[in-house]
Structure formats: structure tokens, C-alpha cells
Amino acid sequence: MAGELGKYKLCVSARSSDKAILRKAQDGGIVTQLFKFALEEGIIDGAIVAGPGDEPWRPRPFIATTVEELMTASGTKYNISPQVSWIKEATRSYGLDKIGIVGTPCQMQAVRKGQLYPVGLRDVPDKIKLAIGIFCMENFSYQSVKQLVEDHAAMKLDAVKKMEIGKGKFWVYGQRGQVVQLPLKVTHKYEQPGCHVCLDYVANLADVSTGSVGSPDGWSTVFVRTKNGDDIWSKAIAAGCFETKPIEQVKPGLELVTKLATEKISKNQKTVEERAKFGVNKGLRNPYLGPK
């Protein structure tokens, strides 16, 4: 199967069967659970994850080599963590032979480009053993998130327990239980510009990709895409890591995923085309046509 949702072998709705993971998870705890399983089974030596940075809600990529380290990175931070920046360092400074990496669709594209065209990624291509992609409509800079939470939602960043985009709103949950919702109309202008040429919503190039869209609260939609991803996923299922339901039996199901994917891709395809005639007989670069 290809198209907006990419090639995949299997699509299910799933959640971790580990209560401790679910308590900290954004949705079904898929990424944390799958990396935990892969670490414990020796499928990977370490995973590049987005952990806590220098400021509240500012993520920083780091290499988790233990389950404890992995757990500090769970949950979604709606701003940029340059995951791929650690990919060579993981094989060098950390000496890892089997790397896991989680990232957005564009970061999965970067990983696969790095495997086929490893210009500056000596000895990296064969060491990527589990690439987990997360669904992504767009991302924000840290300053944008700060502005949304502090100026629009009038909350202090370090008093925020969880952020979420869902049901057409940007949700900010405070530590004391307060909830603020912002319409996406407000958030749009703060989006990272580079996201507007992205032609991938559900991380088509990951081994396994996951996100909340399509599944009920507390569950995640999971696409198993590659041979390698399928192998690891089946082992995790056999080990009882996940509860699953057929995607056809959950609401809102694949229909919503397809709708959002199509919306994102056609909107951004249009942006790519408009960029070509941005000036007067002069356009902006189109990376899909080449490096010139």
C-alpha cells in the first residue's frame, strides 16, 4: 500500500500493557514501550530520544541506553529537537552498533537519506536498527511554544503538565488541573516555516510509525512498515508488550488519518508550487527537484 499513508504491512490501534509507561505517556506509550522492549532484548544498544533540556518544555536529543533514561523522555514536546544531530555521535562517542531513533516524518526522511546518501555519516547506515516515526502536522520553535503558552494561554511554562493537539485545538494542561484550549487558528502563524513544504504526515519512511490520530483517547494508531519493523513489532506483541485492536474496529479510525494526511500533503504541495513563482520571474528553491 502506498499513497498519503505510505507503504505499510500492518495498521492497528494499540497501547502499552505497562501501567507505569501509560501514566507518563502522551497517548498509548508506543514509542517508550517499543524502545524499552528493543533495549531489553538487545535489538538496540541505545535510542536517540527527546529528553528534558535546559528550559521547561525545551527538548534536547540524547542517547538513552537504559530504561530509566528512556522514561525521562516520554511524552510529546511540541517544539524542535534536532534528533538526527546525534546519529553519528551515537556510533562514535557512545560506540553503539545498534541505534534506535525516534523522530518526526522529516527526521525519518533525513535518516533514510543518510542511509542511502551518507555524505558525512561514516559507518552509520548499517547501524540504524529501529527508526520510530511520529505523526506530525507541523512543528513549532521553542519561542513559538513559549509565546503560545505564556501569552495566549497565560500559563507559566514550568507549570504545564501536558500539551496536546487534538480535536481541532491546542490544549495546555496545568499542574494544578487547569486546562486552556487555543483554537488552531491562533497557533497556525507560529508554525515553523520549513514545515510548510513537508509532504509526509504519518512518517512514511519509519520502521514503525505512530500517533494519536485515528484511535480513541489513551490509544495510538500504529503503522508497521518495513520488514525490520514488522520483525520487531511481532516479537513485542508475542512478548505481551501491547494491547491491540484492529484499526477497522476503532473510532474515528483510518478515515480521519487519511483525511488529515491528504489535507496536509495537498496544502503543502500547493505551497511548494507557489514558491516556484514567489517573486517576479524568480522563485524559491524546491528541494525535491535537486540541490541547486
Binding site: 536529543p61 534536532p82 544531530s85 533525513a110 520553535s141
Partner: peptide, 26 residues
């Protein structure tokens, strides 16, 4: 400058002399 960067970090990983870092996603 062309409005294309999404902060993935590939450039920093590729640099052989560690001349590239990422500050606030860029």
C-alpha cells in the same frame, strides 16, 4: 534563508569538525 529548514540536525551530524550546533532548532 529559503524558508526550508526544519531543524532535523543532519548538518550537525555530517560536519567532520563539529562546527555546527543547533540553537533553538536551527
Amino acid at each position: 534563508n529559503q524558508g526550508l529548514c526544519m531543524g532535523c540536525g543532519s548538518c550537525a551530524a555530517a560536519c567532520p569538525v563539529r562546527a555546527i550546533t543547533h540553537e533553538y532548532g536551527k
